[in-house]
Amino acid sequence: MTIERIGPPLRGSERETLRTFLDFHRATLAMKCEGLTDEELARRSMPPSTLSLLGLVRHMAEVERTWFRRTMNAEDIPLRWSPEGDFQAAYDTTGATGAEAFAAWEEEVGHSRAIEAAAESLDVTGYNKRWEEDVSLRLVMLHLIHEYARHNGHADLLREGVDGTVGA
Results as ranks from 00 to 15, higher is better:
5 R>V: 05
6 I>Y: 11
7 G>A: 12
7 G>N: 06
17 T>A: 09
21 F>H: 12
23 D>E: 13
25 H>A: 07
25 H>L: 06
27 A>T: 09
28 T>S: 08
34 E>A: 13
37 T>A: 08
38 D>E: 08
41 L>K: 14
42 A>R: 04
48 P>V: 11
51 L>P: 05
51 L>G: 03
57 V>G: 02
60 M>Y: 08
60 M>N: 11
74 A>V: 00
74 A>H: 13
75 E>T: 04
75 E>C: 07
76 D>F: 04
77 I>S: 12
85 G>W: 00
85 G>K: 07
86 D>L: 08
92 D>P: 07
96 A>Q: 14
99 A>D: 13
100 E>P: 00
102 F>L: 15
103 A>M: 01
105 W>V: 00
106 E>N: 14
108 E>M: 04
108 E>D: 14
109 V>W: 03
109 V>A: 10
110 G>P: 00
114 A>E: 15
115 I>G: 07
117 A>S: 13
120 E>S: 15
121 S>I: 09
129 K>N: 09
130 R>F: 13
135 V>A: 04
136 S>L: 13
137 L>T: 00
139 L>K: 12
140 V>G: 00
141 M>E: 14
146 H>P: 03
159 R>Q: 08
160 E>V: 03
161 G>L: 06
162 V>F: 05
163 D>C: 01
164 G>I: 13
165 T>D: 07
168 A>Q: 03
